[in-house]
């Protein structure tokens, strides 16, 4: 929600000379400093009190994230190492932001699941991390449990996760802090063909972009 500044506001006498305001601010800082030091002192003396505020030295130190946190997506493989996703498009249907983009294809004869995604993309710039896709998935293929919260990027294109980066969650920009993925998944042998096909099916000028904006 946008904050609107009232430019017609008239300053009172104390506000007009600034010094009381500066004094208030300094007093607040000093109060926090003293109170925080008091709690740390109590802790040092082994007297039970509220813990003092501490600064986490990010990115060298990291906070423990809650287990149920909905964060960057990944796609799971099944016990036999095949893609769990069958391109049923229920996540795409459930997605309130239309950020999931799937093109299905018929899988090779030797794969028991008839259908698989040729292209599976999630646009993180659109995603609101509601977790509806995880709820909708009947194959338990999509999860939001990678624990990767660093999703900043310098371009919108980099924020679109493809199947490869969903199977092998890594940092979006290589210049960022060291990535702390839970597991590195071996890519499927036939996924290479999928990638090759994807390059064929996506022509120059990208129909996909046009479609996304037209939606």
């Amino acid at each position: 929600m946008a904050q609107y500044v009232n430019h017609d506001q008239k300053f009172g006498a104390t506000e007009a000379i600034y010094y009381p305001g500066i004094a208030k601010g300094v007093a607040l800082t000093i109060r926090h400093f003293v109170v925080n030091m008091w709690f740390h002192l109590m802790k040092a003396l082994r007297i039970k009190a509220r813990p003092g505020a501490i600064t986490i030295q990010y990115p060298d130190q990291r906070r423990v994230l809650p287990a149920a946190l909905r964060i960057r997506h990944r796609i799971k493989l099944n016990e036999d190492g095949r893609l769990r996703c069958t391109a049923c498009m229920l996540c795409e249907t459930a997605c309130p932001d239309n950020c999931i983009y799937i093109v299905p294809m018929e899988s090779p004869e030797e794969v028991p699941e008839e259908k698989m995604p040729a292209i599976f993309e999630i646009d993180l710039a659109r995603c609101c991390f509601c977790g509806m896709c995880v709820e909708a998935c009947p194959m338990d293929a999509i999860h939001m449990d990678t624990g990767i919260a660093e999703m900043a990027s310098d371009s919108r294109e980099n924020l679109v996760l493809d199947l490869e980066s969903l199977l092998k969650p890594g940092p979006i920009v290589c210049t960022g802090p060291a990535f702390r993925g839970k597991e590195i998944l071996e890519l499927l042998p036939h996924l290479k063909d999928v990638r090759a096909m994807e390059h064929q099916t996506q022509p120059e000028g990208s129909i996909y972009r046009v479609g996304k904006t037209n939606r």
């Binding site: 996909y208 046009v210 479609g211 996304k212 037209n214």
Partner: peptide
């Protein structure tokens, strides 16, 4: 028409 972009129009 909504998913038109997926199959080249």
């Amino acid at each position: 028409l909504e998913h038109e972009y997926k199959r080249a129009g």
